[in-house]
Nucleic acid binder design. Structure first.
Lengths: 242, 242
DNA sequence: CGCCTTTTTGAGAAATATCAATCGCAGTGG
DNA sequence: CCACTGCGATTGATATTTCTCAAAAAGGCG
């Protein structure tokens, strides 16, 4: 399957800034491939030296780092429209790995074309930089969580954040968000152990702020959950889609 | 005091990539000011809507975020040559604050000139993006620390990282690095309490891997400290200086 | 049904936080 | 010179949080 950028359904979502035809055409010309990968595939490897730049077209993924003895930290989750691999494609080697959480589709922008892209269309270069900055903002927020929020607050903040990001992508249907995270993923993202994550999650659920089962998340009171988590950031929108 | 980019002493350090005259001239033309600020000054405020882009010319600074009730997380430390404020200058408002740790000097690049910069010199735009990605990499590494390393490892990793970054800037003299961090800063950066930071630091010191007193850090065994911290990242060098 | 992954539970151990002083030292005013 | 003040470092005692280990329960799937 190959989706040409001008007819990309993502581009029409409210989450994204509408672009002119010419710009979309240039983006399309940069795109070298459209990949389909199974859940669990690692498409950027730690230490990999020739990673490409990707836009996640469909599905969920995450970036992670790990220590020598196997301890793993998830750095950020990626949703459709997110750019993945900017660092990895800019540097000589990647300092992180990226794995598909669900089956995914990726638009590929070859790293070699990056500089040419900067020369050819400065607006797009600006947008790439913007998206890189947004990616850092996501990690910043995560670091705040892991460093300063308690276990319950961390989980609440993560759910809020994902929900707020998923909504303008049209991923929330009738109040239900399909969340492909296992409790292990949540623990890995929040710097918690699996067991503690499970117990804390149970406690939160029992307070009635949200429901989560079988991969379906329903937030009964987003305002209240945000307040509990002290999570007050809205997702920046509209944003560019490369 | 005003330092024109072509005669910038920083630019000659081994940490930085040497640039052509023309490029340096353009950078110089972008620079609108050279500020001198006292230690403790906050030069980017959380929520600020019109932050400029800065290059730290001299001194140390840090970026931070905080929760409503005052809990504070330091996101990253900035050393000379580092770009600060890319997110803040790209977005409508800043999601973090930035404060001078020591007396500092900043080169100012007005946010308004950013897009023009992208049009005028794609190589520089590429470098800005590169520096933004490096900034994210620093936060990634911090998040790994806070999420997965124990207190001792966190401190060791932080010291290693700062030392490895300071060295190519010529800030390490006869094995001694002047470290302007208070234990409270270390605690804020690592997601630890002040008391625990103090006790852990004392324990580490007693193991003889390093010495730290009166703001002077001497690492006796960088290899050993790195191994203990499981910190194996070298600072990327050479890198662009904007 | 049997096998695998994920979730859940219980119990005890370890790490880290909090509270409350005290100490050391540099600057400051008398 | 000395008392006084303020900030950062240090210490001891105690309270919480979070982790680890071990095992059982619950689903999903061929």
């Amino acid at each position: 399957m190959y989706v040409p950028c001008p007819s990309c359904p993502l581009r029409r979502k409210p989450a994204f800034r509408q672009k002119g035809e010419e710009e979309v055409a240039v983006i399309n010309s940069m795109k070298s491939d459209h990949l389909t990968l199974e859940a669990g595939s690692e498409f950027i490897h730690p230490e990999q030296s020739d990673a490409e730049l990707y836009t996640l077209f469909a599905g969920w993924a995450f970036r992670y780092k790990e220590l020598g003895d196997g301890r793993r930290q998830i750095l950020s989750f990626a949703l459709p429209g997110d750019l993945i691999g900017l660092q990895a494609s800019l540097f000589e080697k990647s300092f992180y790995g990226a794995i598909a959480l669900t089956d995914i589709q990726l638009c590929v922008i070859p790293r070699r074309r990056m500089l040419r892209l900067f020369e050819r269309m400065p607006e797009i270069a600006y947008d790439v930089t913007w998206l890189g900055a947004r990616s850092e903002a996501l990690v910043d927020e995560n670091l705040l969580s892991v460093g300063r929020r308690g276990a319950g607050e961390r989980i609440a903040a993560l759910l809020c954040s994902l929900y707020k990001r998923a909504e303008p992508l049209g991923l929330v249907k009738e109040g239900v968000l399909e969340l492909p995270l296992t409790q292990q993923h949540i623990a890995d993202a929040l710097g918690l152990s699996l067991v503690h994550t499970n117990k804390t999650l149970a406690k939160l659920r029992s307070q009635g702020l949200f429901t989560i089962s079988g991969g379906h998340l329903v937030i009964r009171n987003l305002r209240g959950l945000s307040r509990f988590a002290q999570h007050f950031e809205e997702d920046l929108a509209p944003r560019p889609l490369i």
